[in-house]
């Protein structure tokens, strides 16, 4: 009986361990996908910056990047499932505060989505002056979330 109980316990532990490993692998995938998305956002931001600093910026180029941002921004909260923070054991700059202060995180993410949507509308208008004037508002919306919820340490 004793042996059987031990075996059962071992089997349960193994199963749990396997489930844990599977979960960790999932989280690594989640974090990797999240980083790919954020790099796309960074690249779009640089694209807009570079275009605005050309002698004759093309609104159509900026519209393309603005559309990308407008598509990605509302998805942000879905990139942060519980367990995909520093505890996942994978290199991530996502701070634990994202999950300990979910309301503040949602507010910050939502305000970026609003800013991205507004910027896309301005870009669609095609007025380079207006686009240039609004770009800092957009990047400030990125930054407000990053200062609170992104760690500085390289990762």
């Amino acid at each position: 009986m004793r042996t059987k109980a031990t075996l059962t316990a071992a089997a349960v532990a193994l199963a749990l361990g396997a489930a844990g490993a599977a979960l960790a692998a999932d989280m690594a995938g989640v974090i990797q996908a999240r980083q790919t998305h954020y790099k796309a956002i960074g690249a779009a931001s640089k694209g807009i910056y570079d275009e605005l600093n050309k002698p004759t910026p093309q609104a159509s180029v900026i519209q393309g990047y603005a559309h990308q941002l407008d598509t990605l921004a509302p998805q942000i909260p879905s990139w942060f499932p519980v367990g995909s923070g520093p505890e996942a054991g994978v290199k991530t700059k996502a701070k634990a505060e994202i999950w300990s202060q979910p309301a503040a995180f949602k507010t910050a993410a939502d305000s970026f989505a609003v800013a991205a949507h507004h910027f896309a509308a301005t870009a669609a208008g095609g007025d380079i002056g207006a686009i240039r004037a609004e770009y800092p508002t957009l990047t400030k919306a990125c930054g407000s979330c990053h200062t609170q919820f992104r760690a500085k340490a390289p990762g």
Partner: peptide, 22 residues
């Protein structure tokens, strides 16, 4: 150099991509 947010890159970073700049 390109900063992580891609909105304050160095003056010659426009010659390379975001990933290269990172």
């Amino acid at each position: 150099t390109v900063d992580i947010d891609g909105d304050q890159p160095g003056p010659l970073a426009r010659l390379i991509s975001y990933d290269q700049g990172r």
